[in-house]
């Protein structure tokens, strides 16, 4: 029974990540793209939780989404100047 809920949740998150990736690649405005990347890696960390991998989820969340997006914004800011 709970397997069904998990599969449903996983597919929703999967589709969300695909859409996030699409926005990240095709959107013309860079800021939106970077945020979309952040969202994709956030969704990925949730997926890791589903796969019973807490360590990886924490790493992905902290490094994958936080720091990478931060560095992206710093570079963007530098280029915008």
């Amino acid at each position: 029974m709970d397997n069904f809920i998990l599969t449903a949740l996983a597919s929703v998150l999967g589709i969300a990540s695909i859409i996030g990736a699409y926005v990240a690649i095709h959107n013309s405005k860079l800021t939106v793209a970077i945020i979309a990347t952040g969202i994709v890696s956030l969704v990925a960390s949730v997926l890791f939780l589903l796969l019973a991998a807490p360590d990886v989820a924490m790493t992905e969340a902290s490094i994958g989404s936080a720091l990478t997006t931060a560095i992206f914004f710093f570079t963007l800011n530098k280029i915008r100047q």
């Binding site: 690649i25 860079l30 793209a33 970077i34 994709v40 990478t68 280029i79």
Partner: peptide, 12 residues
């Protein structure tokens, strides 16, 4: 930048 974004999605 988009290329690097593509790369990070690829790794994720």
């Amino acid at each position: 930048i988009k290329i690097i974004i593509g790369f990070s999605i690829f790794t994720t």
